[in-house]
Amino acid sequence: MMNILSVENVTKRFGGLVALHNVSFKVRKGELIGLIGPNGAGKTTLFNVICGFYKPDTGKIIYKGRDITGFPPYKVAKLGVGRTFQIVKPFERLTVFDNILTWALVKYKMFQEAVEKAKETIEFVGLADKSNVPAHSLILQDKKRMELARVLAIDPELILLDEIAAGLNPTELKNTMEIIKRIFESGKTIIVVEHVMRFVMNLAERIIVLHHGEIIADGTRDEVSSDPKVIEAYLGVKEV
C-alpha cells in the first residue's frame, strides 16, 4: 500500500449548502501536502470527514487500505491519524505535561511508558520548561506547540494540521516550521491546511487547492501558483 490515504468522491452537505463536492485525491506515505483555499472552501470540513467528526454523504475514506468512512473519531485516531484543531483545544485546567500524558496514555498502556513518551515529546517541541504550567495560561504559540506535542504522543502515521500557523508572528512561524520539518523528517505523512502562503509554500512540495468544496488544482507549488484558476480563486496569491 503506497497510498496511506485515499479520499474518493467525497461529498458533504449541510442542509442546502454543499461543503465538499466530489473531492478525490491520494496521499502517498511520506508526503507533505499543503491544502489551501480561500475561507469557506471546505478545508476543515474535509479534515473533519477524514477524521470521523463528520460522515460524508457520498464517497469513501480509505486509510492504509482500510475503509474508515463513518468510523468515530476516536477509532480513526487509534488507527494512527492525528489531528490538530484550527482553534486550539487544550485541556485548560490540566498542566501542559498532563495534557500530553493524557494523549500518550491512549497509545501506551503502561503508565510509566506513557510518562516517558510525554517527557520525550515535551522536549521535542521545546515546552519542557513549562511542564507544570496550567494550559490555559500559555500564549497562543505554546498552545499550538502543545497541540503538536499531543498529536505526536499517540505516534500517528498520518498527521493533519489545521491552520497551525494562524495568529503567529514571523519568529513563531519560523519555530513552528522547524518543528514540523523535524516531524516530517522522522517519517510521518503530513497534510497541512494553511492560509499563510509563505508557510505552506516553503514547507510543502505538493499543493492541493480547494475552492467552494471542489479541488481546482493538485500539483507542485510551481504548477499551482501559476495556475490561472487558482489565481482567480484567490485574487492575488502572495508571491513566495
Binding site: 468515530p72 473519531p73 476516536y74 485516531a77 483545544k89 485546567r93 491512549v106 499531543r150 499517540i154
Partner: peptide, 12 residues
C-alpha cells in the same frame, strides 16, 4: 475539559 479533543486523542 474538551470532548472533541478527547475524541481526537483516541478516547472513546
Amino acid at each position: 475539559e474538551d470532548e472533541d479533543a478527547a475524541m481526537a486523542a483516541g478516547i472513546n
